[in-house]
Amino acid sequence: MDEEYDVIVLGTGLTECILSGIMSVNGKKVLHMDRNPYYGGESSSITPLEELYKRFQLLEGPPESMGRGRDWNVDLIPKFLMANGQLVKMLLYTEVTRYLDFKVVEGSFVYKGGKIYKVPSTETEALASNLMGMFEKRRFRKFLVFVANFDENDPKTFEGVDPQTTSMRDVYRKFDLGQDVIDFTGHALALYRTDDYLDQPCLETVNRIKLYSESLARYGKSPYLYPLYGLGELPQGFARLSAIYGGTYMLNKPVDDIIMENGKVVGVKSEGEVARCKQLICDPSYIPDRVRKAGQVIRIICILSHPIKNTNDANSCQIIIPQNQVNRKSDIYVCMISYAHNVAAQGKYIAIASTTVETTDPEKEVEPALELLEPIDQKFVAISDLYEPIDDGCESQVFCSCSYDATTHFETTCNDIKDIYKRMAGTAFDFENMKRKQNDVFGEAEQ
């Protein structure tokens, strides 16, 4: 370990593993360490099931009705991949897709007046949907046509809207959309967690709705994908990429100290040895004095023996409960997957309800979601602090990732990755940087 590296990475969460992969592909010498004996950090999948019970201090362990412990891979952080989103792009560019198998999530649902409705995925579904009345549908269709044709580089498509100054509230007004449709559009399509976006320039919202539609167009059922064997497969896929390009991995490796000289990182000390480096990437748990708390998320993992009611017996789905429907500031989400994804025993389902904490009784906040899941065989409640770095790391060369937020997709995580890359490399992130180099010394032969 007593060696000189360009970059040392602490923690094998998804953000850290993707950055480690990119740095290795770009010719950097990388050492990647984790104090845990497993990959994934906060974003790991726990197996066998006995391990999950232990982690949540349920000492009696799983009953026999849960089947074989080894058949379970339970995500600690519930997220899906947008089919046309940035993480899929990263997987394709790096060819990490060859280590993973994905399934399309069967449906996306939205909560309205105590019931759940399928988010329409085709024009026919939209016309048949009970989510809105006849005239509302016509106006909504006009709005969707506007979004589909919108091109930020072609003012002819703006229809009198200025993407940089017109607020989204004004765009909704222009198409005369009612409150329910606005809730549905902002939260189930643009996937905002709160209503803060309404008074911001509309460009980002329009682009988010386009991303949803384009992702949906790829597979038809929903815009989301999920990897077989759980999300823990993602960091491992990128760790393989890093290793192929010469990255060194050490799990179960305690970090005793991060060594600084004149305010700059110069190395990491572990078990009496020092590895030197020019730059350091880590998750917040490794540098508690360089991060601040930015809120909390509650996630309740529920094991069920039945599909969720009114989802047409889907073996995977997402449910969004827009905040307006339950008098909150932030949406509540449910991600459900099952034995069909090799993450649970035969006939079992895993539904994870999550939201940003707003009160001193977080469990009560998630109740509307839990009511949709009854009866629940077993619950595991996790309340996590969200951390963000206190500075950009440019001076110390210590670059810290943000905690995983309450969103049900990876777009915010990818933004964090691109942002850290830019601060480390001094140049904007470009997907081309992730391409495997042809015929290089570490390149794998085609399968």
Rank of each mutant, 00 (worst) to 15 (best):
Q323R: 10
S316H: 00
M434Y: 12
C402Y: 08
R240N: 02
E16I: 05
C402L: 00
A353W: 01
L127W: 05
V265I: 04
G220S: 06
Q346Y: 13
V105G: 06
R436H: 07
F410Y: 04
I332M: 05
L10D: 03
S43N: 07
L59F: 10
L241E: 04
K118W: 02
G113L: 13
N342G: 08
D391Y: 01
D289S: 01
P389L: 07
G21E: 13
N433D: 11
H306Y: 04
S384T: 07
E432H: 03
G69V: 04
P62R: 09
N342T: 11
F410A: 15
I209R: 01
K89E: 07
S396I: 03
C282P: 15
G41H: 14
D385H: 03
L386M: 00
A351P: 02
L372R: 07
Y212F: 03
K54N: 08
E159M: 13
I287A: 15
S215P: 03
L216V: 06
G85K: 05
L59G: 14
E388W: 13
G11R: 02
G263A: 07
E432R: 14
K210F: 07
V357F: 14
V7G: 03
K293M: 09
H409C: 12
K293R: 11
N439Q: 01
E273M: 03
I376T: 07
P163A: 09
D430F: 04
L19Q: 06
N26Q: 08
G295L: 08
M33I: 07
K28W: 14
C317R: 02
C414G: 07
E273I: 04
P284Q: 15
Y111V: 05
G246S: 07
V268S: 14
N310A: 13
D416A: 08
S401E: 04
I281T: 04
E16L: 05
Y39I: 08
K112P: 02
T47R: 01
D257E: 00
P223Q: 00
L251R: 05
T408M: 00
D440S: 09
K422Y: 15
R141T: 11
R141S: 05
E388L: 14
D392A: 05
P322F: 01
R299P: 01
C402F: 06
Q318P: 01
D257R: 15
L216T: 11
M250I: 10
I321V: 08
N262K: 06
K103Q: 07
R299V: 01
D289I: 11
S213V: 15
N130T: 00
N433K: 04
K115S: 13
D71H: 15
F56H: 14
D392Y: 04
A345S: 07
M66S: 00
S43G: 11
F429W: 10
I22V: 07
L31C: 04
A445T: 08
C400L: 13
V105I: 13
